[in-house]
Design a protein around this nucleic acid. Structure first.
Lengths: 260, 260
DNA sequence: CGAGTGGTTGAAGAGTGTCAAACAGTGTGG
DNA sequence: CCACACTGTTTGACACTCTTCAACCACTCG
């Protein structure tokens, strides 16, 4: 358990979550926060624990997951820089974690007492709105995952993940580094390691090259056509790109799926 | 389009959602509401529409769904008496429906302008809490559905549905009427009609009898053992029942899955 | 160098989806 | 009252996807 506490006030620029909130509220919250380092595989909390902290990831990767009695796990989310979790602690209602949170890389996390957020949100509608919006976006993400599990094949889901992970990239193709274990990605997408591996093989014919953690995509458009055009989010997803002369994307609203 | 508008104030007892809220707020809201009848298959709204109404089901069944470009649909939820939807209209943020809502039976629905809810919620923390709690519960439900899709077989998912639909029943077994089409249930559980039908056949060996819309369950405990003991919600789900001498349920917190 | 971890590959099998056909229940019109 | 169409459901045969289990490979770390 690494316990390096730091003042977090100087980190504001890293926390888009607080952007646009009243200065006093942000300062009050930041003052009560602390920065903490978690080693790879270390847990931030376990399911069933009291949910009393609100988290912002400064740097690193965190998985949110839950296990059943058979020891099987389902991964609810994999989060990274700038992402926020533990919203339940900052909102009214039951204060028990329904999930566990674990660092999958050495991570630097800002933690805030839920009570402070809750109290400030009571007084500051903009903060409350920010929290509510975050929950609604998380819900949208979940609903899309449900849809994907039912309507899309494994290779389509893998392609979708790649497109979202490369959403920030310009141009029509390129190479990026896969940020965590493939087994983990597989679990998050609701499939086995082996199936993930075989899905990669099938994606090769669509111009996806894999060498270790390096993923090369010849054409985002081609890949989008393989998965995004079969997804109800097509027009609004940041990961989806129009093919050169394929389907036109309608004017896009803010994306639900945003990866750093 | 049936357009019978009624005053809804006398219906308060049907709306547990408003229970415990300040009288003035409830009255303000109820005054702006109207009761409307929808025929079977009629739509309340379509995805992409402006989301400006908040709904409470007085009587009936509503499905919340979304379609992709291939014409395939994924069903997000199937709701009934006392259930609430359109929460997005009552909360800050984007006001576009991400789903369609359709009556699957003749239904009686109370509708409220989202703006009124939003305005009252701004002033009344209890109402805001109620709305937030509802969203969080919906999210919990979604997360469980994701888990089920990944970790449970089709017959386990069907068993889970039956146990939730019969959660209100006393005793160790009994008969109830399935409230909507099996094809619809199948789609909501993420499987095809045929698979649903075959899952029923397999459940027969666990004491589940089906005759048309009549479902007979010999032992809730036996059925729970088949599905609930493999679900991470086991200890808190209203549908799960302890087997006679099987696994003990821990002290249960309020259930996520509540059917009328 | 051997153990450990993460990833790939192969063969076999269970579980679902697909397509087609048959069936049951309902309502309609003659 | 029956014939008919219509809808929802079940069943069968078959193809296909994904999982399972096992072995193997690549890489890292002691």
């Amino acid at each position: 358990m690494v316990e390096q506490a730091h003042n977090v006030e100087h980190l504001l620029p890293n926390f888009p979550f607080f952007a646009g909130l009243p200065k006093e509220d942000v300062e009050t919250i930041l003052k009560t926060g602390r920065l903490r380092q978690y080693k790879k595989n270390e847990h931030l909390y376990h399911e069933g624990d009291k949910s009393d902290r609100f988290f912002i990831i400064r740097k690193g990767w965190i998985r949110i997951y839950r296990g059943n009695a058979d020891g099987e796990e389902s991964i609810a989310d994999i989060l990274s820089d700038g992402d926020v979790f533990g919203t339940r602690a900052a909102l009214p209602g039951k204060k028990i974690n329904t999930f566990s949170a674990q660092a999958i890389e050495d991570s630097s996390i800002a933690e805030f007492p839920g009570s402070v957020l809750r109290e400030r949100a009571e007084a500051c509608p903009i903060l409350m709105h920010r929290l509510v919006t975050h929950v609604l976006e998380t819900m949208d993400k979940l609903q899309i995952e449900n849809e994907h599990m039912y309507l899309m094949s494994t290779s389509q889901r893998v392609a979708c993940l790649f497109l979202r992970l490369s959403a920030h990239m310009l141009g029509t193709g390129g190479t990026f580094t896969f940020p965590y274990d493939k087994a983990l990605a597989a679990a998050h997408l609701g499939m086995k390691r082996e199936t993930f591996s075989r899905a990669l093989f099938r994606l090769a014919s669509l111009g996806v090259g894999v060498s270790g953690y390096e993923i090369t995509i010849d054409s985002f458009g081609t890949l989008s056509e393989h998965c995004c055009t079969h997804c109800s989010l097509f027009s609004t997803c940041k990961g989806a790109r129009a093919a050169q002369n394929g389907a036109e994307k309608k004017a896009a609203a803010p994306a639900l799926y945003m990866q750093p």
